[in-house]
Nucleic acid binder design. Structure first.
Length: 479
RNA sequence: CGGGGCGUGGCGCAGCCCGGCUAGCGCGCUUGCAUGGGGUGCAAGAGGUCGGAGGUUCAAAUCCUCUCGCCCCGACCA
């Protein structure tokens, strides 16, 4: 329960975040190093996220399946870059049933290897393709520095793994998924992400191409919020995923993989949250509106509850995720703060005055205080609340978009770039060389985020070395 | 792994340097009464053997030795 005041966001953003996750009742620290317990309220939020994504994946022909948590350690050695990328963060099971294991088993950090292994068994003919499987579950990476939701040792996600007959189809799949991720962020999470291609140094271990969606947090650091990879035949060759094509010749598959993790919850917190606590976008909020009945005497209570119960039923049957806060051991003021901490988009206050006037007070979470409060008629309340939820959803996206755009600048020269990335994002031409990227990282700690798709092909010069360059990239400090 | 810090009721801490009454405080928790339109008040309660092991001493949260664990900063990261 929210007993003490939250640290101000502007005072200590990191501390604000840590406290908020606990106070909003989303998650708690687990007794295992770097791991979290997602509490019911946090999980309800995650379920709203997953059910939207799951529906989209199914609409586009994907099916769900489950692969084991344990993977033979030797599988990781089959793809050279993949093993280099993941070896340092593997947890390995060495004993079972009281005996040392002959074949050590890795706890999956991601499932390309075991799924690749299975695909090589399952795929024989062009008729078997494409294969479009999604796994929902958790993975484990031995992270050195952890933070609830943003980077925990174990985290929750879906991982899509697809195999195709041609490079064109596989690339199309990568972009199709990236578009779903983009739509999810804009329409559901109200986060204006930028989709683009990762640089060679930032791409997934073993990938041919990595695309990502990148989001700007309130402290202006960047958070990679989802990725979609095209592997070409890298994993197919490592795991012998081959099929006979229509011409009866043996051919390697083209594969992809992609993921959004529970980190996205951290993104929502850091994009929308404020000094009062969490602010959830209505489409994903586990509770979209909460009713706080207010009364002094028993007589008042009876009259107020009669209206409150009626309103509850009306909003519920209109499909609004509604909660009645009828706790009588805490004050109304406490309840207001409590639900604001949890980010509930709309609060419906009903007191004796409202009973008399046939009104209710509505408070919107995105505008705390007097500004966001209005008195409306009890008549047709469901449509009033529904309209308000839509308005809040839109206003969150608008606010986040304006904030993002106000904090992206195009540097005039390298000195300007250094100044910009100290406290915002820079967007500029870059020659795509590792040297220039490394120089920026060493000088400023900022990394390339992504090269946005759909940018006009124009001639420019690299902001670092001055060589001719065709595409612009975002530079920012990342989480 | 390198640099800092910390383990005392559920949480946050004081006490330790200069051993000694029944180990304190705030928050939370329980019960009752009042309160209730922006974090409510009063009263009465429950709850710890001081991270662990060993040692010194008449006496150890406090001194000594060993040990376990955690947090923060850096390298790595969805």
């Amino acid at each position: 329960m929210a007993e003490e005041k939250l640290t101000k966001r502007a005072e200590d953003f990191s501390e604000w975040y840590n406290q908020l996750v606990l106070k909003a009742d989303l998650a708690d620290y687990a007794p295992v190093r770097g791991c979290m317990v997602v509490k019911p309220y946090g999980w309800a939020l995650w379920e709203n996220i997953t059910s939207w994504l799951d529906a989209e994946f199914k609409k586009t022909g994907h099916v769900n399946a489950a692969f084991p948590t344990l993977i033979p350690l030797s599988f990781f050695e089959k793809e050279k870059e993949h093993v280099e990328g993941f070896a340092p963060e593997l947890a390995v099971v060495t004993h079972g049933g009281g005996q040392e294991l002959e074949e050590k088993l890795a706890v999956r950090p991601t499932s390309e290897t075991i799924i690749g292994h299975m695909y090589s068994k399952w795929i024989k003919s062009w008729r078997d393709l494409p294969i479009l499987i999604v796994q929902w579950g958790s993975v484990l990476r031995w992270e050195l520095r952890t933070k609830l939701f943003l980077r925990t040792a174990e985290f929750y996600w879906h991982e899509g793994h697809t195999a195709h007959a041609s490079a064109a189809e596989a690339k199309e799949e990568m972009y199709r998924i990236l578009d779903i991720y983009e739509r999810f962020c804009f329409e559901q999470a109200a986060i204006p992400v930028i989709k683009g291609t990762k640089s060679e140094t930032e791409r997934f271990a073993g990938a041919h191409t990595t695309t990502s969606i990148e989001a700007m947090m309130w402290d202006k650091r960047a958070l990679q919020s989802g990725t979609s990879h095209y592997f070409s035949t890298n994993f197919a060759k490592a795991f012998e995923i081959q099929f006979l094509n229509r011409e009866n010749t043996l051919q390697y598959c083209e594969t992809t993989s992609w993921a959004i993790s529970s980190r996205i919850i951290g993104a929502m917190i850091m994009v929308h949250g404020d000094d009062q606590g969490l602010v959830l976008p209505p489409r994903l909020a586990p509770i979209q509106a909460v009713i706080v009945p207010i009364h002094k005497t028993d007589a008042d209570k009876t009259r107020v509850m009669e209206v409150a119960d009626r309103v509850f039923m009306e909003l519920k049957s209109a499909g609004i995720r509604i909660k009645m806060d009828d706790r009588d051991n805490v004050s109304s003021g406490f309840k207001f703060n409590d639900w604001e901490m949890r980010g509930v988009p709309v609060r419906v206050e009903i007191g004796p005055k409202d009973v008399e006037k046939g009104s209710v007070a509505l408070a919107r979470r995105d505008k705390p205080g007097r500004e966001g409060k209005s008195f409306v008629s009890q008549t047709d309340l469901a449509s009033t609340v529904n309209a308000l939820l839509v308005e809040i959803q839109d206003s969150l996206l608008k606010r986040a978009t304006e904030y993002r755009d106000a904090n992206i600048h195009e540097p005039k020269d390298y000195e300007d770039l250094k100044r910009i990335v100290a406290d915002s994002w820079a967007f500029s031409y870059w020659c795509e060389s590792k040297e220039c990227e490394t120089k920026v990282k060493e000088d400023t700690k900022a990394t390339t985020r992504n090269i946005p798709l759909d940018q006009p092909e124009e001639e420019g010069i690299c902001i670092v070395c001055g060589k001719p360059s065709k595409r612009k990239v975002y530079f920012a400090k990342a989480y």
